[in-house]
Design a binder for these strands. Structure first.
Ligand SMILES: [Zn+2]
Length: 740
DNA sequence: CGGATTTGACCAGCGC
DNA sequence: GCGCTGGTCAAATCCG
């Protein structure tokens, strides 16, 4: 027993009350008591020194009062649980200590040392209070005396118990570890499988594309309209500035709400992408404005297969280039330029990728969750409605741009084309859009048409991919000079029938689905409330075009900000006129936007799920594996009654599950935030609930697509959006107002 | 007054 | 080289 005099007059006594020897470790129990005025009245510390065999040198052990833990393999866990390492004092490399101080003054300290460690630093370890750092003698264990004897015994028992527990935990940890490893392996294999499947699908698709126009709608209308002139999608621009009503604004505000961090955030990347997108972040500085505009749609990095490796390493290094005011030059060639690596080329392609969204809206623009500033408007050939150009102003350097134009044939349809990748956090709605854009880029990139196709084959038919020239597709001729970028069209109007009719003879309005319930699905960490419908007209093999009936009506007039009100009505089926318009135009076709064939009617119900799921899915994995999984998942509901794709469903399920297991759940995007079911047109009160009518569907969709907020990327979610920047855009007001 | 919109001008790419 | 078109800039204008 030692007595140490503290600076404050108190003295501390130490005594080795017990010593436990084991072939693997030596444990010393040192009782410390502090006394005042020579009276030992308080037990302040019991120092447990454990000397381990060399084999256990690196193991951390902790012994707490009444609780013992040891698990060499989960030392981190211990650490996380509050145990502190005092490594700074470790005299030897292999010497680590863990100290746990109890409130009542007891501290059971466990020292772990390598061979030869003599544990002469216990005094130093117990530096609290008045205890000076003195070296304790390695004196032989003194016989327990008095009350300390029982304590020592107890400690020894506990130590043994702790060891047992540690061993158990270690074994358990091993099991978990192996389990995780197995899951990871399975996941990888599954991804490979998915990719392979997609590849096969793409091959099939290509074959189909060879003889395009003749294909029945039910088949898969992939339209590679690269050579097609004017872009039908964006033909019309409805009136332009329409005044916005207060009520509408209010609604819009209400709509704004859930937001998530999307892009740049690595977390998101993790969440959305199982394998981080390749940060092919070629500095945008090299990009012309237009390039950046077209570029990386949605925050995801270009996912070309060739970039996978890169993707793995480079994560979300989304560099967002400053908006450059230069004029841009667009790459019109589809061929890989000499001297340019495939990756580079792909990257360019991605940059060029565009996503066009067709949605019904009376408002000048669609509320997509971002702030936009109009920087131009001009008449586009072939469409009496002006085309408005907007730039994202959420972040100063955000390169994202969008074009808004009314559909000539159906002025209720607003065609919004997005290009570029946001360099900031996005609201939920914006994220959805961005995701879609990313997905489009990914698809276009990866497969060119081919690769894109495969995915699409499994996705709901509301997406149309069109590209300048099917990169792999022979069907598509040359790219038009002005529209070198591939475009994916999301048709949110419920015009499947019309679309079909355009390309096929389906009668409009045939698409109808019953929305039965919403089902939460997590894809890439995003929980999606999917509507499950009983009647689904999904046509399995339609790769390219997916028409997703979405009944979004934006009543707000204010440009982006405002609101979007969804009318539950299915709109007329004549909204798709992509190719037809082009052909009918007779005008020059430089439209970059090449809408594709529309799909067979799809029930509105599926829209929400399709949209969200597909988007989320697409977003997540550059390799498309994730995208595919998501897509599959998105259509699971559709296929509930359809046994055709049981295997597909299984695959999707597996992927999803695995992803979950691997921790891909979205952390920054609370599942609830993405639950698109909103009541009362508000995104704030998202909840999963049965949906049975259009209004509800509209609301859901609105939540998913349009709810927005413009808060800075500080919070993942915020309900209160700041007002949209634009003051009532005049996009839809009067056609022909300006001619270039 | 600051910010957003409007709108004429400018530029680049492409076809002829 | 010219004309056309898409896309963008930026001064003027509008608006809250
Ligand atoms: Zn942005």
């Amino acid at each position: 027993m030692w007595m140490l005099e503290s600076s404050n007059g108190e003295s501390t006594n130490k005594e080795v009350v017990n010593r436990f020897d084991n072939k693997n470790m030596v444990v010393e129990v040192v009782k410390k008591t502090s006394s005042t005025s020579g009276r030992f009245d308080m037990l302040t510390d019991i120092d447990l020194s454990v000397k381990l065999d060399e084999d256990n040198v690196d193991e951390d052990k902790k012994v707490e009062k009444g609780e013992h833990k040891k698990n060499p393999q989960i030392g981190q866990d211990h650490q996380m649980c509050g145990t502190k390492y005092d490594e700074t004092r470790s005299p030897a490399p292999n010497f680590r200590r863990i100290r746990q101080q109890h409130e009542n003054g007891y501290a059971f300290k466990c020292k772990v040392g390598g061979r030869g460690s003599e544990f002469r630093e216990r005094a130093q370890l117990l530096t609290r209070g008045a205890e000076p750092s003195s070296v304790e003698d390695e004196s032989p264990p003194s016989s327990p005396a008095g009350p300390t004897a029982s304590v020592a015994t107890h400690l020894r028992d506990e130590l043994m118990a702790a060891r047992t527990e540690i061993t158990r935990l270690s074994e358990e940890n091993d099991r978990f570890r192996s389990m995780l490893t197995q899951l990871s392996t399975e996941y990888r294999n599954l991804q490979i499988h998915v990719v392979a499947s997609m590849q096969r699908s793409s091959d099939t698709l290509n074959n189909q594309v060879q003889s395009p126009q003749k294909q029945c709608i039910s088949e898969s209308p992939i339209i590679l309209e690269a050579s097609i002139p004017s872009n039908p999608d964006i033909k019309k621009f409805h009136g332009l500035s329409s005044p916005r009503s207060a009520p509408q604004e209010q609604i819009a505000k209400q709509m704004i709400g859930t937001r998530i961090f999307y892009n740049q955030s690595p977390q998101i990347q993790d969440i959305t992408v199982s394998r981080p997108g390749c940060g092919r972040p070629s500095p945008e500085g090299s990009l012309s404005p237009s390039e950046s505009f077209q570029g990386r749609p949605a925050m995801l990095q270009p996912p070309s297969p060739s970039q996978k490796a890169c993707q793995l390493q480079q994560r979300a290094s989304v560099h967002q280039s400053e908006w450059q005011a230069n004029k841009s030059q667009k790459i019109s060639h589809c061929d890989v330029p000499q001297g340019q690596s495939v990756n580079q080329f792909e990257g360019d392609q991605v940059k060029k990728a565009r996503v066009s969204v067709r949605a019904r809206s009376d408002a000048a623009t669609m509320n997509d969750g971002c702030q936009w500033r109009k920087y131009g408007q001009k008449m586009a050939k072939g469409n009496p409605w002006p085309r408005a150009y907007f730039r994202c102003t959420v972040s100063p350097g955000c390169p994202v741009r969008k074009q808004v134009q009314r559909c000539e044939e159906d002025t209720s349809i607003l065609v919004t084309t997005y290009e570029g990748t946001h360099n900031h956090a996005l609201s939920l709605a914006a994220a959805v859009m961005a995701s879609t854009t990313s997905a489009a880029a990914s698809m276009l990139l990866t497969g060119s048409t081919t690769s894109a196709t495969p995915h699409m084959a499994t996705t709901p038919q509301f997406i149309t991919i069109s590209g300048p020239q099917g990169q792999n597709s022979t069907a598509v001729p040359a790219i038009s000079a002005s529209s070198p970028f591939p475009t994916i069209t999301l048709d949110l109007t419920n015009t499947p029938a019309s679309q079909i009719s355009n390309r096929s003879n389906n009668s409009p309005g045939t698409a109808s689905t019953n929305l039965h319930y919403f089902q939460d699905t997590t894809i890439n960490g995003v929980t999606i409330s999917q509507a499950t419908t009983q009647q689904q007209l999904m046509i399995p093999q339609q790769p390219t075009t997916i028409s997703c009936p979405m009944f979004l009506n934006e009543t707000a007039h204010k440009h982006d900000g405002s609101n979007l009100t969804l009318r539950g009505a299915f709109s007329d089926p004549t909204t798709h006129h992509h190719r037809q318009m082009d052909s009918s135009d007779g005008t020059r076709s430089d439209h970059q936007h090449k809408p594709a064939v529309t799909q067979p009617p799809e029930s509105p119900t599926t829209l929400a799920e399709s949209m969200t799921a597909a988007t989320a899915a697409i977003t997540s994995d550059p390799n498309f594996a994730a995208a595919l999984a998501a897509a599959i998942t998105s259509i699971l509901a559709h296929q509930h009654n359809n046994n055709n794709n049981q295997s597909l469903q299984d695959l999707a399920t597996q992927v999803t599950e695995i992803r979950h297991r691997e921790g891909h759940q979205n952390t920054s995007l609370p599942p609830s935030s993405f639950t698109p079911v909103a009541s009362s047109g508000t995104t704030e009160g998202l909840q999963v609930q049965p949906m049975s009518h259009d209004a509800e569907l509209s609301t859901i969709l609105a939540s998913a697509m349009m709810s927005t907020s413009k808060d800075p990327p500080s919070t993942g979610l915020s309900k209160s959006p700041r007002p949209f920047v634009s003051q009532g855009s005049a996009v839809a007001a009067a056609p022909d107002r300006r001619h270039q």
